[in-house]
């Protein structure tokens, strides 16, 4: 702006006559550059994953061809069972995260003064300041045979034998998932509660709407798109993050991410690609179902 006005004052000498078009040409690239980046490093690799999954396996890599061997290898082995059970336990994690996290989001919206709300929500980012590996690894001394939980329970006399199912099991993975993903349901719940109008809780007080009805009739329908988005995020991460079952899981307690990682370790690249493709398909169908049910575009629509 300063430039323009000084031009006008000095009589509009075309000093920067060729500079301005150069700048103008640059502007669209501010938007094109990220698009190109995303196509090159996201869209193309995703498509390649599907293509590679039908390639022939060789000793150390793969060669072009068309075979469904990798899919057969996945669907007709223990891998499918493991994949399905990791879906089940991811779903359990989602439910636990929701039960623990959503009331926090509602509480922050309802009972914290508006100016402080965002700060309170930011507190949930603090755990992310610590590397995930360390965070997850720190669960081991808590959950293991002679760990914090077991020794406390034994000293209180509540149990005689240490509970071994806490670690290297599905339980351990679920605990790790809840720990890692709880903030996401708080964030998405907080955003989802934006769809709940300002005075609605007072209207409920006035009409005598009890807490359960309030949740079922008012909060849930309004916050559904946001809750669903948060839940899908947790579910997909529960399936895909190999780190959690790697550190906390054990026999049978693996997820799709770990199956793919193991396939890569075994140099079976087409299988790893097939597992990834199956995960992508799972995610896309989940989003499609969610969109049909709740119209996910509403997440970003402010109240009119």
């Amino acid at each position: 702006m300063a430039d323009l006005s000084s031009h006008a004052v000095s009589g509009g000498h075309p000093v920067d006559a060729d500079k301005a078009p150069w700048r103008a040409k640059l502007v669209p690239w501010v938007f094109r550059a990220p698009l190109i980046f995303m196509v090159m490093f996201f869209a193309i690799p995703m498509a390649m994953t599907v293509v590679f999954s039908v390639f022939e396996r060789t000793m150390f890599w793969m060669e072009p061809g068309f075979t469904l061997f990798s899919y057969e290898n996945f669907f007709f082995s223990a891998r499918l069972t493991n994949f399905l059970s990791s879906m089940k336990y991811s779903l359990i994690s989602v439910v636990i995260c929701f039960v623990l996290g959503f009331p926090i989001a509602v509480f922050v919206r309802k009972s914290i003064p508006q100016v402080a709300q965002h700060r309170v929500v930011l507190l949930f980012i603090l755990p992310f300041m610590v590397s995930e590996i360390i965070r997850v690894f720190a669960l081991r001394p808590v959950l293991q045979r002679n760990g914090l939980v077991n020794s406390t329970l034994m000293e209180l006399g509540l149990i005689d034998e240490p509970i071994t199912a806490l670690l290297y099991s599905h339980t351990g993975v679920v605990i790790g998932e809840v720990l890692s993903f709880l903030p996401f349901i708080v964030f998405s719940g907080f955003l989802a509660m934006e769809a709940v109008p300002k005075y609605i809780f007072e209207v409920c007080d006035d009409l005598g709407v009890g807490p359960w009805r309030r949740f079922k009739d008012v909060i849930l329908p309004l916050a559904a798109p946001g809750i669903f988005a948060g839940s899908v995020f947790i579910f997909v991460n529960g399936l895909g993050v190999a780190l959690l079952p790697n550190i906390l899981g054990g026999a049978g307690a693996v997820n799709a991410g770990l199956i793919a990682t193991q396939a890569i370790t075994a140099l079976d690249f087409p299988l790893a690609m097939a597992v990834s493709a199956i995960m992508m398909a799972t995610l896309l169908s989940l989003l499609w179902i969610g969109h049909k049910l709740f119209d996910l575009t509403k997440i970003l629509t402010p109240l009119s």
Partner: peptide, 11 residues
């Protein structure tokens, strides 16, 4: 009570 605005159930 009748409120200023934003007090109807949007759904």
């Amino acid at each position: 009570m009748v409120f200023q605005a934003y007090a109807l159930f949007p759904h």
